[in-house]
Computed example of a mutant assay.
Amino acid sequence: MEITTTYTIETLGTIAFAISGTFAAMQKRLDPFGVLIIAFVTSIGGGTVRDMLLGDTPVAWMRNVNYCLLILFTSIATIFFKTHIKKFKVTLFLFDSLGLGLFTMVGVEKGLLFGLSPGMCVALGTITGCFGGVIRDTLLNTIPLIFRKEIYATACIIGGALYFALVYFNVENNLARFIVIAFIFSLRVIVVRYKLALPKFTY
């Protein structure tokens, strides 16, 4: 059951970030090849950085071609159905927020699999959730969300800490996973809806 649930979460996260990357690339009017590249780096960027830090090589998408095929088909399907989705910006935001929650959970569990401390697991969850978006935004010549005042990485950190709090209070593991993913997604929606942000430092 554990393996099945983890694989399902990772698959959903890959789909969510592939859609997010595809919409981001289409907003910048990239050609089809460029759209596919951005979809790939958005989906695999965080996991690649995580696996390299752990020394878990070859990285996950190199060991399992199904991830590459999933990203390819998801991106193509998103391009095909783009005419049915008018609000690109809203769609990008929603799928990016969903992917953030899903991949944060994947990163936390990968850290646990390697026997790391809770703090390091939360850090890995944050890296897994955020770095695909960082690479995507950098390639698209946009300041990554993680470096702006918007609450982004903070949502991953709080969500990761929440997971360990739930485990401490003996919440069933699958329920804890769902709560964390829903929390990160909801926090992002609330933050953007009410324009909440961390303070900026000026000099």
Rank of each mutant, 00 (worst) to 15 (best):
I3C: 02
I3R: 13
T5G: 09
Y7S: 14
I9H: 11
I9V: 14
L12C: 04
L12S: 10
T14C: 07
A16Y: 10
F17R: 03
S20F: 05
G21R: 02
T22H: 00
F23G: 01
A24K: 08
M26W: 06
Q27A: 13
Q27R: 14
K28M: 07
R29T: 12
L30F: 11
L30S: 11
L30P: 12
P32G: 03
I37A: 06
I37G: 08
A39K: 08
A39H: 02
T42L: 06
T42Q: 03
T42S: 15
S43K: 01
I44K: 00
G46Y: 03
T48G: 04
L53T: 06
L53M: 15
T57G: 03
P58W: 09
A60M: 13
W61F: 15
W61R: 04
M62Y: 11
M62A: 12
M62K: 06
N64H: 06
N64M: 06
N66R: 10
L69T: 12
L70S: 00
L70D: 00
L72T: 09
F73R: 03
F73W: 06
S75G: 07
S75V: 03
I76F: 10
A77F: 07
A77N: 00
A77D: 01
I79C: 12
F80E: 07
F81T: 14
K82I: 13
T83N: 14
H84N: 10
K86I: 09
K87P: 00
V90H: 14
T91R: 02
L92Q: 13
L92F: 14
L94A: 09
D96I: 00
S97K: 09
G101T: 02
T104Y: 11
M105S: 12
V106T: 15
V106M: 10
V106E: 10
G107N: 07
V108W: 05
V108A: 08
G111P: 04
F114W: 15
G115V: 00
S117N: 10
M120D: 07
M120V: 13
V122N: 03
V122G: 08
L124M: 04
T128Y: 04
C130R: 00
C130H: 05
I135P: 12
D137H: 02
T138Q: 09
L139M: 13
L140H: 01
I143A: 06
I146P: 02
I146C: 04
F147R: 08
F147L: 13
F147G: 05
F147P: 08
E150L: 11
Y152K: 02
T154E: 13
T154I: 12
C156E: 07
C156G: 02
I157S: 05
G159F: 01
G159C: 01
G160A: 01
L162S: 05
Y163E: 02
Y163T: 00
F164W: 09
F164M: 05
A165H: 01
A165N: 06
L166R: 01
Y168R: 15
Y168C: 11
F169I: 15
N170W: 10
N170D: 15
V171N: 07
N173Q: 13
N173K: 15
N174A: 11
N174D: 10
L175V: 15
A176V: 02
A176I: 08
I181D: 03
I181G: 02
I184R: 04
I184Q: 04
F185D: 10
S186F: 04
S186C: 04
L187E: 09
V189T: 08
I190M: 06
I190P: 09
K195R: 13
L198M: 14
K200P: 00
F201C: 08
T202G: 04
Y203I: 15
Y203L: 14
